[in-house]
Simulated scan of single mutants.
Amino acid sequence: MATVSVPMRGPRPDVAVIGGSGFYAFFDGGTESVDIATPYGATSASIALGEVGGRRTAFLPRHGANHEHAPHTVPYRANMWALRSLGVRQVLAPCAAGSLTPDLARGTVVVPDQLVDRTSGRTQTYFDGGAVHVQFADPYCPSLRAAALQPGTVDGGAMVVVEGPRFSTRAESRWFAAQGWSLVNMTGHPEAVLARELEMCYATMALITDLDAGVAVGEGVRASEVFAEFERNIGPFKDLVRSSVAAAPKATECAHCRVHEGVTLPIELP
């Protein structure tokens, strides 16, 4: 079980935002911070609690407050477990992504509907014992995706998640594009499947920061350019996320992500 080392002053949050590269803060003020110990270690950073659209909301920077964690070292299991233990049942996960098609230009926000896992070595389950198999054909919650489809966003597309921390070769990028996949990212897995195992609604909003190596002609992707593009768009991007939080229905109204009915789990969920 998870334990909160600092008691919360306000009500428990039922929705959370996990910020990606360049997205290290979310609330303008009136927040409190909690630290949670989990069976899977510490979270990426302290969890901030505030109000968005009248809803008690948690915020956690995926890479840490100062980008201490590379994509392959993010404590994904601890992060998701801690959020659920706080009462969170919906997670919006904004992230940076590369485009695999010229149709998706820099600055575009995409709400993907599919995920392709090309990571390796990341622990992607809480169920190390017992035979528990979660439904994952549609990895993102349809209700939360609908809330994230704010004006100006692009509906749908497959996001391929690579191990990192290196960027793709030109041949890999062209291969991904040839499969019909739209986006490439380094953090969307195992986060999405861990949310499903915890029966939390989960959706991502991907800000296009670059054209991947097989799409753009030139030297390929540079980290400095990715961060600069994200910084140029962070204000409007945060506004889109805030609007999505405010538009999200209560998680109790969603049956899509309740995948354990009739199943005896080998562990007790927080």
Rank of each mutant, 00 (worst) to 15 (best):
V4T: 07
S5L: 13
R9V: 14
P11T: 07
D14A: 09
A16P: 06
A16M: 11
V17L: 06
V17E: 02
S21R: 05
G22T: 06
G30M: 00
A37F: 11
T38S: 08
P39A: 08
P39K: 06
A42Q: 04
A42M: 01
A45G: 03
A45Y: 02
G53E: 05
R55G: 03
R56N: 09
T57G: 00
F59R: 00
R62Y: 14
G64R: 04
G64T: 05
N66R: 14
H67R: 01
H67L: 01
H69L: 02
T73C: 02
Y76Q: 01
R77D: 04
N79H: 06
M80I: 15
W81G: 03
S85D: 11
R89W: 12
R89E: 11
V91S: 06
C95A: 13
C95L: 11
A96N: 10
G98M: 05
S99G: 08
L100G: 04
L104H: 13
R106N: 14
V111F: 11
D113C: 09
V116Y: 15
D117W: 04
T119L: 08
G121T: 09
G121A: 09
Q124K: 08
F127G: 09
G129V: 15
G130P: 01
A131S: 11
A131D: 11
A137L: 14
C141G: 00
P142V: 03
P142R: 04
L144V: 02
R145V: 08
A147Q: 00
L149V: 07
Q150T: 13
Q150M: 09
P151E: 10
P151N: 10
D155I: 08
D155H: 14
V161Y: 08
V162M: 14
P165K: 03
P165D: 06
P165S: 06
R166W: 13
R166Q: 12
W175L: 14
A178E: 10
W181P: 01
V184I: 11
V184Y: 10
M186R: 05
T187M: 05
P190K: 00
A195V: 04
E197I: 02
Y202F: 15
T204C: 08
M205P: 03
M205T: 03
L207C: 13
A213G: 01
A213V: 03
V215M: 02
G220Q: 05
A223E: 09
S224K: 12
E229H: 15
R232L: 15
N233E: 15
G235K: 15
P236V: 13
F237E: 05
F237T: 03
K238Y: 15
K238L: 15
L240S: 12
L240W: 14
S244W: 09
A246L: 06
A247V: 02
P249D: 02
K250C: 04
A251K: 01
C254E: 02
C257A: 07
V259E: 04
V263G: 07
V263W: 14
L265M: 13
P266T: 12
